[in-house]
Design a protein around this nucleic acid. Structure first.
Lengths: 215, 215
DNA sequence: CAATATTGAATGATTATTCAATACAAAACT
DNA sequence: AGTTTTGTATTGAATAATCATTCAATATTG
């Protein structure tokens, strides 16, 4: 009785693992393909070949191409969210260190690499026309910005900085990051992750001139 | 002889006018269509309908869809270039005023409106995969950045600002503009042109704290 | 009556989606 | 242990829709 039950359990776990491996394999292949060929030229057939499954299976597995694309966007979005959420939740960091960690994360190789930025920009360009894409990004964006504002507010208070509001600083930061991501894509020789990060840090340095951690 | 020659001249001008009206009509229709439906969903048939010509004609006139898209990008790019070139060439402006004019232009209704930003972003997302798109943007971008660096350098010298280099400031400015354009598209209620411009001016204010024109 | 501009239906290529056929693995039965 | 049965995973060829492109026919202009 026990052995049978164990066997079933193992089998079920392994089956799920198999399934989620295929699931993730297809999402990875989608990201690779968009990065390599662009969203306009990404067909189910290309993705399937990249993932080494049949074309029919890719479609069957995700019900539709649209759904596969959406799932890939969700994956990227979740991955990004997890990375910054960990930093906002870390109670051991003082505000300035937390801000520095956020910058570091935003220009880490895991987040700001050419493959992933290609995909982000491809989806950005379609967001206006696909409500489903927008809803994946919008909510997380709001949370990020809200946390950021709280954090900047703390730093403003601590440093007696009051010529720029927390909203203004976090909006500026956010758009600078978006802009720099774009530039990493166009000209990665000049816009290395390090260069981008240092530009951002210098921005903070010019606002918080007495804060030594930005030096 | 003279009358015939005049007639021919007039006729030729009017024919060219007709032709260039159709030409421009199709380019405008392309921009409208990309803004309304996205690049992925922009077909020759949609553009032709928008321009009120037949589908066959649109293709015939531009030889291919690819060429129509490229011509539309060129049009946008030239329009933008003309607008900032005029400012860089205006000898009556002192450096800070010139910088203020550049900002104003970058967030003017003519340049930074939802239609045109939609089209820019649509092309950006494909730039990596179409060398022809890249070559349209790249050169002008370089000139813009170069002029900007010269300008910032003048202001740095004049104001004894030396904690940030001209390159750093112009790169930061440039990416912030790109980022803000993106945000105008996503959330035009918050990111009005005025709001974006004021964010940028405040950035300069925090760098050039003694320069009264940024107040 | 040319000569040129414009049309719109036909063509062919591409591609998402479907689904009958097959491979595979686990369970049930000798 | 080996064989059969059953259920699920996966394939890939067929289908149907979309769309750029072509071009013979028609309209327009000088």
């Amino acid at each position: 009785m026990i052995t049978v039950s164990r066997k079933q359990l193992t089998s079920s776990i392994e089956k799920n693992k198999e399934i989620s491996i295929n699931h993730q394999k297809l999402i990875d292949a989608t990201i690779e393909t968009i990065a390599k060929r662009g969203l306009a030229d990404t067909t189910i057939s290309h993705v399937a070949k990249q993932a080494k499954v049949s074309q029919g299976y890719a479609n069957f597995r995700f019900k539709s191409k649209e759904n596969l694309l959406l799932s890939s966007l969700k994956f990227l979005s979740d991955e990004y969210k997890k990375s910054w959420q960990k930093i906002f939740e870390d109670e051991n960091l003082d505000p300035v260190d937390r801000l520095l960690k956020i910058c570091e994360n935003d220009f880490s190789k895991k987040i700001a690499n050419r493959n992933k930025i290609s995909v982000w920009i491809a989806f950005y360009s379609e967001v206006k026309f696909r409500p489903s894409y927008l809803s994946v990004c919008q909510k997380q964006d709001e949370i990020y910005l809200h946390q950021m504002e709280k954090l900047i507010d703390e730093i403003n208070t601590k440093t007696n900085q009051n010529s720029l509001s927390a909203v203004e600083i976090s909006e500026s930061y956010h758009s600078m990051v978006d802009g720099l991501w774009q530039r990493i894509l166009f000209d990665p020789k000049i816009y290395t992750n390090e260069f981008c990060k240092s530009l951002i840090i210098k921005y903070f340095k010019s606002i918080y001139q007495n804060e030594k951690k930005f030096q």
